[in-house]
Amino acid sequence: MKNILYPLKFEPIYQYRLWGGRKLENLLSKPLPNDEPIGEAWILSDRKDHASKVTEGPLQDYTITQLMKDYPDELMGKLMGRFDRFPLLLKFLDCKEVLSVQVHPSDDQKKYIPDGDTGKTEAWVVLETEKDSLIYAGLTPGTNEQNLREAVQSNKVDEHLHSFIPKKGDGVFIHSGTVHTLQGAVVFEVQENSDVTFRLYDWDRTDAKTGKRRDLQVDEALACIDFNQVNIEPVIPVNKGDKTERLFDNEHFILWRIKSDSSFTVGCINEPRILVCIEGNGKLHHEGNYFSMNKGDVMLLPASVGLCSFHPVNEITLLEIAIPDKKMPATNPQ
Results as ranks from 00 to 15, higher is better:
E192D: 07
Y16N: 09
E97P: 04
S263H: 10
I258S: 00
P302K: 03
P37F: 01
G184D: 02
F188I: 01
D49M: 10
R273H: 09
E11A: 09
D158K: 14
D115A: 09
D261E: 12
K120M: 10
P87I: 09
E287H: 08
D46A: 05
N289E: 11
L99M: 08
M76F: 06
L134G: 11
G57P: 04
E97F: 12
L255C: 09
D117L: 13
L5F: 05
E56S: 11
L300S: 01
T210Q: 01
D325W: 06
S163A: 11
H50M: 14
C95D: 10
L99D: 07
I113K: 06
F291Y: 13
T129H: 01
T143Y: 10
K283C: 13
P33G: 05
A223W: 04
N144K: 04
F310Y: 15
H286N: 15
I4R: 14
V266G: 01
D215M: 08
Y201C: 09
I254N: 14
V313M: 13
L275C: 03
T55A: 08
R47N: 10
L93W: 04
W42I: 05
D202S: 08
P166M: 00
L139G: 03
T197P: 08
W19G: 00
S133P: 03
G169A: 08
W203T: 07
V298R: 02
E189V: 07
L32F: 00
D325Q: 06
K48L: 11
V54W: 13
L307E: 14
S263I: 08
T121F: 03
L161K: 00
N228D: 14
T197K: 06
T181D: 11
Q191W: 03
Q183I: 11
H285T: 11
G280R: 00
L284Y: 08
K259I: 13
P302N: 04
V54Y: 11
S309Q: 12
R82P: 04
E130Y: 13
A303T: 11
Q146F: 15
W256T: 12
T317Q: 12
I174F: 04
R205G: 02
I113T: 09
Q217H: 14
L222K: 01
G184W: 07
V98S: 13
L247T: 02
L161C: 10
D115T: 13
K2T: 14
D107Y: 05
I274E: 00
T55W: 08
W42Y: 06
E97A: 10
T143G: 02
L318F: 08
R214M: 11
A208K: 11
K2S: 12
R82K: 13
R213V: 10
L275K: 04
F188C: 01
G138R: 02
G142L: 02
N231A: 15
G77I: 11
Q217R: 03
C308W: 01
R17W: 09
G241F: 06
